[in-house]
């Protein structure tokens, strides 16, 4: 039962990464592109967690945590660059 759920979930998360890639390419504004990148990093966390369930290991946990933290920091950095013209004032 878990195998079929995993196949379905891999398909769904891969499709949602493609959809956020479409928004990343189409734009039209800077805010939309930043939001699409943030969504892609959240989806990458979901993919890594699914990979950990499929492989039956816990060694992917640190990778998921680091990608979650870097996604947030990069979103804030992009937004501050657009808002203030500088990241650290």
């Amino acid at each position: 039962m878990i195998e079929y759920a995993l196949i379905f979930a891999f398909a769904c998360v891969g499709l949602s990464m493609i959809l956020s890639m479409v928004r990343l390419i189409l734009g039209p504004g800077v805010g939309d592109r930043v939001l699409a990148l943030d969504t892609m990093s959240v989806n990458a966390v979901a993919l890594i967690v699914l990979l950990g369930i499929a492989g039956g290991t816990q060694i992917y946990f640190e990778a998921a945590l680091i990608i979650a933290m870097l996604g947030f920091v990069s979103t804030v950095a992009y937004c501050r660059f657009v808002l203030r013209g500088d990241i650290i004032e």
Partner: peptide, 14 residues
Amino acid sequence: IGAIFTLVGSYGLV
């Protein structure tokens, strides 16, 4: 459930 909600989120983005 998680897969469906992730897909709905990205579909709404488009």
